[in-house]
């Protein structure tokens, strides 16, 4: 069972986000973390590997320092990592991002599953997973909370939808027809890396691929980065919510905090 897992480095939601003049996220100014949903996708891949053998490969597209997300993935147990980094890849929208990642997946080859998080918490688009599936010409199952591989090599998925869930099965074994899967945050609890693995991951050599490494046709260079992106960010606003920030209760013990909360929120008035 060979899985390629796509992990994205996203700005830490709790640090202030820098913006560029083009209205895109300034990744140089933002502290990066691994997109939380991608950790769920990676955990699912690692569990499949533990059960069925095979290999877990992680890929990210981003600036050179996005290797931190890959090292985190290696320390959780991924076998191999590739960083896609090139100025030509910068300012990509979902179409260009999916094209870039799919070219790398083709180069890695020999995969049964392509796994990603349902969405990245910066763009919140949830588009890259399905768009990669389209580029690779393979079926997709989105919003997957559970999956199983059966004795005949076919896969069974539990897919969340608005009013319940669906059970979906592949007609062919994954070895004949790979599937792209996007994984929900309720799927599992991502493991913590061991200290040993962390040390090892810190020293791992991570190959960096540029456009030239994943693209044979000169003509297709325009499919990367800004030139490959139909959408443009016209503007970004921070809506004035008018809401004052959350007042956190003070106190050294839970009891003190509860007392503080009751006073601040005038909860005693709510008493029946």
């Amino acid at each position: 069972m060979n899985c390629v897992v796509l992990v994205k480095q996203v700005p830490d939601p709790n640090k202030k986000v820098g913006m560029t003049d083009q209205g895109t996220v300034d990744r140089d100014k933002s502290e990066g973390i691994m997109n939380p949903f991608d950790a769920n996708a990676l955990e699912m891949a690692l569990q499949l590997k533990e059960k069925h053998g095979g290999k877990v490969t992680v890929v990210t597209m981003g600036p050179p320092k996005a290797d931190a997300a890959l090292r985190e993935a290696l320390s959780m147990g991924a076998d191999e990592a590739f960083l896609l980094s090139d100025r030509k890849m910068a300012v990509a929208d979902t179409l260009a991002t999916a094209y870039t990642l799919s070219q790398a997946i083709r180069k890695i080859g020999n995969y049964d599953l392509v796994m990603s998080g349902i969405m990245a918490i910066d763009g919140d688009t949830a588009q890259v997973g399905p768009q990669i599936a389209e580029r690779l010409g393979i079926p997709q199952v989105t919003y997957v909370e559970e999956m199983e591989i059966e004795a005949d090599g076919k896969a069974k998925f539990k897919r969340l939808v608005e009013d319940g869930y669906e059970i979906i099965r592949t007609r062919q074994p994954l070895s004949e027809c790979p599937v792209a899967v996007t994984v929900t945050n309720t799927a599992n609890k991502p493991r913590y890396p061991s200290v040993m693995k962390k040390l090892k991951a810190a020293k791992a050599v991570i190959p960096t691929w540029t456009v030239a490494d994943i693209e044979d046709s000169e003509e297709n260079h325009s499919r990367y980065g800004m030139s490959g992106s139909p959408t443009k960010v016209k503007k970004i606003e921070r809506p004035q919510s008018g809401k004052s920030p959350c007042k956190l209760a003070e106190g050294k013990t839970p009891d003190e905090m509860v007392e503080c909360l009751f006073k601040q929120a005038e909860l005693d008035k709510a008493r029946a």
């Binding site: 939601p13 986000v17 016209k234």
Partner: peptide, 11 residues
């Protein structure tokens, strides 16, 4: 975007 922190206009 950003979990509702910003409003982006896309064209």
């Amino acid at each position: 975007a950003f979990g509702g922190d910003v409003l982006a206009t896309i064209v």
